[in-house]
């Protein structure tokens, strides 16, 4: 008795009549050997995907999920990298990247004499700087007084009773300093955080960290400045970099993302 193997699967993929006829009959009853083979081998064609689509459709339908912006930003970044595939794809990937600028929370980044790699947007605009060892991306969500969450674009108007929640993607583990600046004041250190590689909410030792806007009004800037563990600059050094006064960062280890909002006071109508 023949059971499925690589050769048989290839024959089925080629629709060889003899193989089709034999396995149509053979698979009409349970066969542990064939089921075991099918469970651990791909194909033919996209049968695996069909099987998974059917199985996943058994669960109750889920509500429409919002775009996972950080995840899509990772995909977009990978697509920007050179690839052996066609020239056509390069154009499409570029289009994806350009289009995403409209919806993704891409931190607005600044560069100056510091030579610090300030994040992905500086690459998009063609600015060359020293490349930090951590690539950092930031998404910001506002939690309203009613508990509702809403994704923010840069320069969004927020209310003073909102709390800003930060979600980052870091390519390496490290340490991050979170700063805020009101209007033309000096950057103010809000806290120090341990970053994990991957996509995570910004958390301190007490749990999820939010930036309260209580008592704030007008423009507010948040910076998250990250460096690999063991290479942490002092807060004062980072602060100088943020305001464009820092010296050239010889190691090129600091990655900075910036996010701006405008806060309206609670007295104003929404």
């Amino acid at each position: 008795m023949r059971h499925l193997d690589d050769e048989a699967l290839s024959a089925l993929a080629r629709r060889e009549p003899e193989a089709v006829k034999y396995f149509r009959e053979h698979l009409a009853t349970a066969c542990e050997a064939c089921e075991g083979f099918l469970a651990t081998h791909s194909g033919p064609d996209v049968l695996d995907g069909q099987v998974d689509a059917v199985l996943l459709a058994l669960a109750p339908p889920r509500t429409d999920a919002p775009l996972d912006e950080v995840g899509f930003a990772r995909v977009r970044r990978e697509l920007r990298k050179p690839h052996l595939d066609t020239r056509r794809w390069g154009l499409i990937a570029g289009a994806v990247a350009a289009g995403l600028l409209a919806i993704i929370v891409v931190p607005r980044l600044r560069q100056g004499g510091s030579g610090v790699e300030l994040g992905p947007a500086s690459q998009e605009s063609g600015v060359k700087g020293q490349v930090g060892r951590i690539a950092l991306e930031l998404a910001v969500v506002a939690k309203g007084s009613d508990g509702a969450l809403r994704r923010l674009d840069p320069d969004t108007l927020v209310d003073s009773d909102d709390v800003l929640l930060l979600r980052y993607h870091a390519t390496e583990a490290g340490t991050a300093l979170l700063f805020q600046r009101r209007a033309d004041e000096e950057p103010q250190l809000l806290g120090t955080f341990e970053l994990e590689a991957g996509t995570h909410d910004l958390r301190g030792p007490q749990g999820l960290s939010g930036v309260s806007l209580e008592g704030e009004s007008g423009p507010l800037t948040l910076w998250l400045a990250a460096s690999p563990a063991g290479l942490e600059p002092s807060p004062d050094e980072v602060k100088r970099v943020l305001v464009g006064e820092g010296e050239r960062w010889e190691q090129g280890t600091l990655a900075v993302t910036r996010f701006d909002v405008r806060v309206r006071s609670g007295q104003n109508p929404r």
């Binding site: 089925l12 629709r15 089709v20 396995f23 149509r24 698979l27 009409a28 349970a30 066969c31 064939c34 089921e35 075991g36 083979f37 099918l38 469970a39 651990t40 033919p44 049968l47 695996d48 069909q50 099987v51 998974d52 059917v54 199985l55």
Partner: peptide, 22 residues
Amino acid sequence: LERFRGRIKRELLRRVLAGRWE
């Protein structure tokens, strides 16, 4: 889960062989 999935895949493959390619 994989064992169960193997069973479902066999059943769907059988159905494909029984008509969807012909």
